[in-house]
Simulated scan of single mutants.
Amino acid sequence: MVAKIVKASFPGHLLTRPSVWQAPYIFASPHSGRHYPSRFLSSSILDLTELRRSEDAYVDTLLPSPDEIGVPILTARFPRAFVDVNRSANEIDTTMFTTPPKISAESRSNRVAAGFGVIPKYAAAGRAIYSRRLSGQEGSSRLSMCYEPYHAALRGLIDECVDLFGTAIVIDWHSMPSVGASGQKLADAVLGNRYGASCDRAVCTSWEAALDGAGLTVRRNSPYAGGYVTSTYGKPAKGVHVLQIEINRGLYLDEARTMRIGARFRLLKERLGSAIASVISDAALPLDIAAE
């Protein structure tokens, strides 16, 4: 489960499906990718450990398998420092490139201004990733080879889920630092639903109750209310709900030094598995109906 240095210039995504899709859920892990192109590493002034601090490290491995829960899981293999799929494709800092990528750039976005656009300028803690500008072709290629296929897969899953069940619920899994920007200790889990705009209240309540029942402390929308995925795909009036779940890294990771899995990983995985099974079982169709 360690990070991999790969020759592939543009690592893709992984979509794993259950043998039977049993409930109107889709799980996504957009920031846990740890396949680092060797060409990317050679262009960065940061070492691998520093780049990995941008990851939602190992969130994908905390989740049960698709066959255990009966829902598909979409995971980005490329690292967040390479391409951030929880951004608009237009959130581009044009100053990063010798010539701008061939898109309509939203360079005045707050996230771009902070250095965290779709192709990040900075890693965690505001550390510059590059010492020189990238080519416009590099930016365009990352979007066409990583970003666009990931979102096409997510849109396809949502459409398929709605066709099967009449509704779709996307759970966008992330991790967060154990301590907030102002130094406060964060909850074990934060549920982000754009203050009710991206999913029905009942969806959020069911996850809050399940996580609380598994022994985790839970907050809503503070300090994370959801990002591009929740705001773009969450359309409760049309039967599509998106809930972002942030897991405290201090529960399972040596976040301060090595970025390695900690001693409490297995316990957290068991607790999350229990909470997930509870929610999914309440929403699951009988096997004979789901198989039709």
Rank of each mutant, 00 (worst) to 15 (best):
M145C: 11
S43Y: 09
F27R: 03
V190T: 01
A153I: 03
R77M: 11
E106V: 06
F82W: 08
L251V: 05
E50A: 11
R219V: 04
F78A: 07
T16S: 15
A152F: 13
F27I: 05
G139Y: 01
A181T: 05
Y130C: 02
K4S: 11
T167M: 11
A153Y: 13
S140Q: 15
R34L: 07
D188I: 01
G12V: 04
L14G: 08
D60C: 11
N248S: 09
T61P: 15
S43F: 07
A187S: 01
I158E: 06
R39L: 14
N90I: 02
P236C: 02
L51H: 03
L14I: 08
I261S: 13
I69K: 00
I169F: 13
G226Y: 06
G180S: 03
D163A: 07
S38A: 15
T205L: 14
R17G: 06
R132E: 12
R39P: 05
C204N: 12
Y130E: 03
T232S: 10
G213R: 00
T16G: 14
F40L: 01
D159K: 13
T61I: 15
G234C: 01
K121E: 14
L253H: 04
M259Q: 10
I158M: 09
L186P: 00
V6A: 04
G234R: 04
R249Q: 11
R80F: 10
S44V: 00
L14Q: 14
E55H: 07
R77L: 12
A202I: 13
